[in-house]
């Protein structure tokens, strides 16, 4: 939630204060549960922003984004597993719980996977692109389902959260929340910078008219693959955070419905605005929380609600505030 760069200084300041004050307020109200929920929201906000980079700006409707989230989470999970068992990965690499190693590695692995998938899939257009990214995500899903050494279908529990030397301890809920907040603000702010750079302009141009971009001499294929890779890497970081938040990784994280939910968050918030999808993630998880407290069959409400949103509110939440944010 990179409100720090919002031109709406007052609104941004209020939001920043609210975000900073959340853990102590929740603790004083005796509701520490909300700190965990808020961390989860921030993680998904980050994931939704990474998807928005390719979906909203590049026009690449990726229906397999949860796979990158899952790979990032599994990097943390698998290395943690080997650290706990004192065994070697591939027979040579020792496990570790150090976040200095696992978090960048999560980004690297997810980014590299996105690079490979991007090489194949951005050649296709429209519905074919939607389906091929879905197919790759399914491959990743089944790969981890059949990985019996790491729990298969049942997933893998994290013995402990990632460590950062003696700098911070993520065991504490509030600390974890602030670390997640910092990550979301830094990386989210970075993504906003990217979209305003030449790279971001080219990406938007490709969405508007790819042929034209090609004819003015821009290698659109490379730009699309680069954006896809970057989005995958950021989703990988979100995955590493998610593994820590849940203390658990499982193939369910990359189930295709999760990819669908990520798209819903982006659309709900308003694609092509980065801050919108971040808000979309918060709203989506709030809806899930509120509806599921009301009835166990909350999806019967969510489904039709989704149809209504798509039908009536095409611009998402962000589009509902045109005047307040018109000067962007």
């Amino acid at each position: 939630m990179a409100k720090s760069i919002s031109p709406r200084a007052v609104l941004g300041l209020l939001l920043a204060l609210a975000l900073l004050a959340l853990p102590p307020v929740a603790l004083s109200l005796g509701e520490p549960f909300y700190i965990g929920l808020a961390s989860r929201m921030l993680v998904f906000a980050l994931a939704a922003m990474s998807l928005d980079l390719i979906l909203g700006y590049g026009g690449l409707v990726c229906f397999g984004h949860a796979a990158f989230l899952g790979v990032g989470a599994y990097v943390v999970g698998i290395l943690g597993h080997h650290a706990a068992e004192q065994t070697l990965l591939f027979g040579i690499l020792p496990g570790t719980t150090s976040g200095w190693v696992t978090w960048p590695l999560a980004m690297l692995c997810a980014g590299f996977m996105a690079f490979l998938i991007g090489l194949v899939s951005v050649r296709t257009q429209g519905l074919y692109f939607i389906m091929i990214t879905l197919a790759f995500a399914q491959m990743a899903y089944f790969f981890f389902v059949t990985l019996k050494g790491y729990g298969g279908d049942d997933g893998l529990s994290l013995g402990q959260r990632s460590t950062f030397s003696d700098l911070v301890s993520l065991r504490d809920k509030s600390t974890f929340y602030y670390v997640t907040l910092t990550m979301a603000v830094l990386v989210g702010g970075g993504l906003i910078k990217v979209t305003r750079s030449r790279f971001g302009m080219v990406l938007r141009g490709i969405k508007e008219n790819e042929r034209r971009m090609l004819h003015i001499g821009i290698p659109t294929f490379r730009y699309k693959v680069a954006a896809f890779t970057l989005a995958g890497a950021v989703a990988g970081l979100a995955g590493a955070l998610l593994a820590n938040q849940a203390n658990f990784v499982s193939p369910a994280m990359m189930h295709w419905t999760r990819s669908g939910e990520l798209i819903v968050m982006v659309i709900l918030g308003g694609m092509g605005s980065l801050l919108g999808p971040a808000a979309g993630a918060v709203v989506f998880l709030t809806l899930e929380e509120v509806l599921s407290a009301y009835t166990e069959h909350w999806q019967i409400i969510l489904g039709p609600l989704l149809i209504l949103v798509v039908y009536f509110a095409r611009q998402g939440l962000y589009g509902m505030l045109p005047r307040r944010r018109a000067d962007r």
Partner: peptide
């Protein structure tokens, strides 16, 4: 556009599964 269709029918899946 296809994205809208994907989302709306995704909503229907949620509805029918729960129903």
């Amino acid at each position: 556009d296809h994205l809208d269709q994907v989302l709306a029918t995704f909503g229907m899946i949620l509805f029918f599964n729960e129903l």
